[in-house]
Design a protein around this nucleic acid. Structure first.
Lengths: 237, 237
DNA sequence: ATATTGGAACCAATAATATTTGGTTCCGCT
DNA sequence: AGCGGAACCAAATATTATTGGTTCCAATAT
């Protein structure tokens, strides 16, 4: 065989034609996976780049889907919730996070007010004190996160706590570090501190409605600050 | 060496004493993992069962923690949210699931009312029709789940949808099949059907408050039925 | 005779390693 | 400039080894 075959760019078109036939064939046979790119290139006598270009077309058409390390498959990508969780930071943005927190955490504060013991209240107050006395921003954010999670724990619903952790992991993702830094300005510290106190006071009074409202006020203040600084964030499309 | 050493049951106590020393030693050295049970048994000249009994004591005291396939470690088990997600069905119960759904899904219906397109409404109505016309209970539950997830999708918040999927996976767990069967009685079908319609009507009217309320009513009816049938479920402690 | 122990074998979950495979970059050739 | 080939990267999978969990049995002591 002559090395470096026909110099024309028709190779990818040829590969595309033959791949369409192959995909139809596999579809009728009910098989899903097609050969590796290297095998396809050798079988058709073209380079791997030509094969890849052809596969890109088929993928854009939705006829196939590919996953690095796994292979190329006929049809559309199956829905796998677990896999989706891992790349949540890529498909979400801070506005969505706040939209969720605004609905989750007030409910958690409400439940905490219903179920908190005296020891729970003491624990949360300790954390609030740590938030208030922390000097650098890193430790402040650390303790603040611990306080919010403590409230979620005191709420006494394991499933709810798991949901909180999912949101919290997205929130803590490095992608949003600069956004979080913008939120925690010195001027707002006293406001956040007093709002924390309102939440804890309501929980200690066993006043679910007040706890819910206080937490909502706190998160609304955060959201407001978010909208002020960035003027809105679009998703990373 | 004589096979089957000292016949006394003191072996586990002896092992416990020596293990305490070992744990203290590792703790000061900053090392976490201690030898395998087989190695410990050989080193101390006792059987593995004696070692295991001693380790059980230390684990109950919170001095060590063990994981099958990994090893035994000094200290307390580190918090790993991902690992916790996998065994959620074991640590939760149906009441917790309903408590969460009652706070998640009304918010999702509210957002859906704000963001639904005409095509979205048509899609959800198709699913509602499938629920109403399904004859056997399995397919009914299947389409009902699809409808609820459609509403969560129309809500237009990827993170919120991910949370819904987490709850849904727990809800669909095989452990609760008999509970779900008890919920879906023939007598309640017309009620659920009309409640679905109320939710979709409110969404089509772009009435967030009504959509939220209708969804809450629907879930409250489900929760009520759950409490009626089982008389309350305690967690599997 | 009964109970307890040590030993061995097996099971199941985890971790470590190797292999596969799509994704990317680079180079020589035409 | 475009192609083929090779090499390398990174994600996913398959395989193997490790390790706690469990069961069973024979030996021994009481």
């Amino acid at each position: 065989m002559s090395p470096h075959g026909k110099p024309t760019q028709r190779n990818s078109s040829l590969a595309l034609e033959r791949l369409r036939v192959l995909v139809d064939q596999l579809e009728t046979e009910g098989r899903a996976q097609l050969p590796t790119e290297r095998e396809l290139a050798e079988q058709m006598g073209v380079g791997r780049r030509a094969v890849r270009r052809a596969l890109e077309v088929l993928e854009a058409e939705g006829r196939i889907w590919r996953r690095q390390g796994a292979g190329t498959f006929v049809g559309t990508e199956p829905h796998q919730p677990e896999r989706h969780l891992k790349k949540l930071p890529e498909v979400t943005n801070m506005l969505e996070v706040m939209e969720v927190r605004l609905r989750l955490e007030p409910a958690l504060a409400q439940l905490a007010a219903l179920r908190a013991t005296a020891a729970d209240v003491a624990w949360m107050r300790q954390l609030a004190a740590k938030v208030a006395t922390a000097d650098d921003m890193d430790s402040r954010e650390l303790w603040d996160g611990a306080l919010h999670r403590a409230i979620a724990t005191v709420a006494g619903n394991k499933l709810f706590l798991a949901l909180f952790d999912v949101v919290d992991r997205v929130r803590q993702d490095d992608t949003w570090r600069h956004v979080r830094e913008a939120l925690r300005t010195e001027a707002r510290l006293s406001l956040y501190k007093s709002q924390h106190m309102e939440v804890l006071d309501a929980i200690e009074r066993r006043d679910p409605a007040a706890a819910e409202k206080a937490m909502r006020q706190h998160l609304l203040a955060l959201q407001e600050r978010l909208l002020q600084t960035s003027g809105g964030l679009s998703d990373a499309s």
